[in-house]
Design a protein around this nucleic acid. Sequence first.
DNA 1: CTGAAAGCGCTTACAG
DNA 2: CTGAAAGCGCTTACAG
Lengths: 335, 335
Amino acid sequence: MKSNVTMKDIAEKLNVSSVTVSKALNDKEGVSEELKEKIKTLADEMGYRYNTMAKSMKDGRSYNVCVIIPERYTGMTQSFYLKIYQSIAQILEESGYYGIIHILPGDDEEKLKLPRIYHERRVDGFIMLGQPSKEYNQLIQSVDMPLVFLDFYDEHDDVDAVITDNFYGAYELTNYLIKQGHRDIAYVGNLFSTSSIQDRFLGYYKSLLEHKIHLKQEYVISDRDDRGEYIEFDFPDQLPTAFVCNCDQVAHLLIDRLQKNGYKVPDDFSVVGFDNDIYATLSSPSLTTVEVDIEEMAKTAVKFICEKMDNPSAEFGRIAIKGKIIFRESVRKVM
Amino acid sequence: MKSNVTMKDIAEKLNVSSVTVSKALNDKEGVSEELKEKIKTLADEMGYRYNTMAKSMKDGRSYNVCVIIPERYTGMTQSFYLKIYQSIAQILEESGYYGIIHILPGDDEEKLKLPRIYHERRVDGFIMLGQPSKEYNQLIQSVDMPLVFLDFYDEHDDVDAVITDNFYGAYELTNYLIKQGHRDIAYVGNLFSTSSIQDRFLGYYKSLLEHKIHLKQEYVISDRDDRGEYIEFDFPDQLPTAFVCNCDQVAHLLIDRLQKNGYKVPDDFSVVGFDNDIYATLSSPSLTTVEVDIEEMAKTAVKFICEKMDNPSAEFGRIAIKGKIIFRESVRKVM
DNA sequence: CTGAAAGCGCTTACAG
DNA sequence: CTGAAAGCGCTTACAG
């Protein structure tokens, strides 16, 4: 396939002007049907490919949306964000845009370095996927360009954000445990580590409140230090009958730990997770957990950014996308 | 930050021509040092951002490289390709290019539909990451554009390819088992499923040959059907003392199965995997396996594609990148 | 050292 | 219905 055919080439062969060729190829009015067909056929034959760069230059749009993911969220066990990106890219594609993924190196985040693509004017909007440092957050907001936060939000600013409904998911999960007869339910997670762990905790707490179950401080069990490194669980003297874990990986670790101490799950303890990631099915027993609706999150974020690119003053606020409980084998009914 | 400053704007403020501004900003000769500094300073102040679209149009290059990954390789447990992509993108970035990932939908693969980015002339080269269908393979080769295969090769054509050294990895791993005293060693994998399973088998076989160990047909144990779905292992009547598995996930399944039958690993059987993915450390015991050198593979593929974009007639052939054995707990010395 | 002219491939607004 | 002119933002080749 040749790759250097232009509208002008087609025009010359047909003895028309390139304006006419442009109109025909773009299905605009002002060309006779007959001529239009002729032009289209010849374009095909000559292997013509539309040059979007030229169009981009004309209308000052790049048709690229850059998805920034802080590097630390892309580790071994965290293909989650990459999967979201995959959805985003596909949906952008359908809207006539290209998704460009930018894994933000820790170093650039530290030094407040914006992606090269920004400096080279090849981007019309940003989706920030995963919470960056406070400073970087401010930097990206200072850029005069459509911006959507995905999977996190900023308490202090009002950037449009699409998040998982962490609160409601944990709330429902805890309700379910209570319906199964559990009254002594612990929460596993460091409440000061991320906003999603905190929000999940609050959902758990709301469920307790509604059922008039007292929240025992020793039932809030930390799972990691403030840098995010997992630590040994510090179990309370009197054990609960069920554990609400802030994520599947921690649920997996917890089950492992319980089993090593000779306990059985779910016979002795019920455990639930969050995320429905690889650890949910890897665990034995498999985990009852909340599946995040990746597709819907991606769809919503793309919808927001596209509308903002067309109309920069559009505002959407914060949208929480509900997940779905997946019932598996890690919960048992008690009397 | 304003986003609509052009070279012309800068030129007018300084009463010079935009040619001079262009030269100054690109560090070309033909401008006095003094003026150059003045221009650069003003550009900064005015928040000037270089418009690469314009440059692209001038020299007919998009500076984009498209990495195509068939959709079926991006499933839940397969973040492997996405990790490779991550490396590729970072290295391309350093070379002044952008990586554009294109997850090839199964449907498009079937219908032989090239990425939109190709039809819109926004790409200078392709990296095909993961083997597509035979027909798609031919299609992509028919496109007159630099192309590199990554993590697979085509026996019949001579497209430049960068692959893992499957053969040598399995060879070394088997050598290691033999050095630990094993003589009865089975291979686990369907030899007709993918070329990497086959090549790993051949490496295993070479090691046996060199040590004058007879290859027993019943020691070649299939792990999946021809569609790639895992099947139950069909163990031979007389069990070996060690298993060379074609990948970590299968090693993980095998260990599970052995343990359910009351055996202990590595006490009763030694097991090795390949890939060093999440299953290697998830298994208990953790797996001795081969770590694929993702960084080096990405580096090599990028080097190839970049040189080919500068010089389309450059040829590199097929390069196998060596992995590294990771020693863990799944192998035991026998007497 | 500096800049006027032409061109990259397309589209818009206008004239015929 | 058709097309000449101008312009998007930059660079190259040439002239002064």
